[in-house]
Design a protein around this nucleic acid. Structure first.
Lengths: 114, 114
DNA sequence: CGTATTTAGTTTATAATACAAACTAGTTAA
DNA sequence: TTAACTAGTTTGTATTATAAACTAAATACG
């Protein structure tokens, strides 16, 4: 009954706020363009780009490059099943940690009241 | 209705897993010894020490050094009202973000179904 | 005694990484 | 034809999480 060590095992690829926001947005959108995602998250493009690369490397997102009217480059991003699963597991882990922390807290207050 | 930018505003001092685990433990314990906290969190002492310094600098914890029978040094750590409040606010923020992300997700699926 | 080891931490060095500035490649405007 | 914009990527920097090395005092041992 010690939830605290579990926190160290949180998926850090998702835990990082910028990526958590990207992943959450993608989970809602099913597909998004680079610039739309940037608008949503408020990240700079450089930052967006490097976070997306990390998510892609982990197979959490799928990045597609196409050209609008064969001219303007357009990058679309989708969450993969792997990524979607990882996000779900992340929130499950958070919930679990909070739940047993609350329990542990009560037990402790019984053991060491005041 | 765009929760994603809010994630960037999460209190990073608390968000970091090692410190989140320290703060959660302290919230439950009201007071803990250094070594007990280290046991709970599974952190190395060096790591513990530097995280505690950061929390102390932010006035999230109060660190007291005393000597057992005037001999063995014993460091006790307590969460401060400021720290306790920050932790509560952190979880509130997380809940809020999840809530409106869920809402936004539904709206999006109505706007772009399938 | 004295010197070796253990205890309870702190400080320092390193490795990872979040971030934006600078860069690239192509497009449209003047 | 050159200037400025667009849609990103790469590179450099500054922060920071982490453990290794260090410190200071206490106990163990020969």
């Amino acid at each position: 009954m010690m939830p605290f060590k579990e926190m160290a095992r949180l998926d850090k690829l998702i835990h990082e706020p910028a990526r958590l926001s990207i992943m959450s947005a993608l989970e809602a959108c099913s597909m998004a363009e680079f610039l739309f995602l940037q608008e949503l998250t408020g990240l700079t493009k450089g930052n967006m780009s490097s976070h997306l690369s990390k998510l892609e490397k982990a197979n959490y997102v799928l990045i597609g490059k196409s050209f609008l009217r064969k001219k303007i480059p357009q990058t679309t991003i989708q969450i993969t099943p792997t990524g979607s699963h990882a996000l779900t597991e992340y929130w499950k882990q958070i919930d679990h940690i909070r739940e047993i922390t609350k329990q542990w807290s009560q037990e402790t207050n019984i053991a060491f009241p005041g």
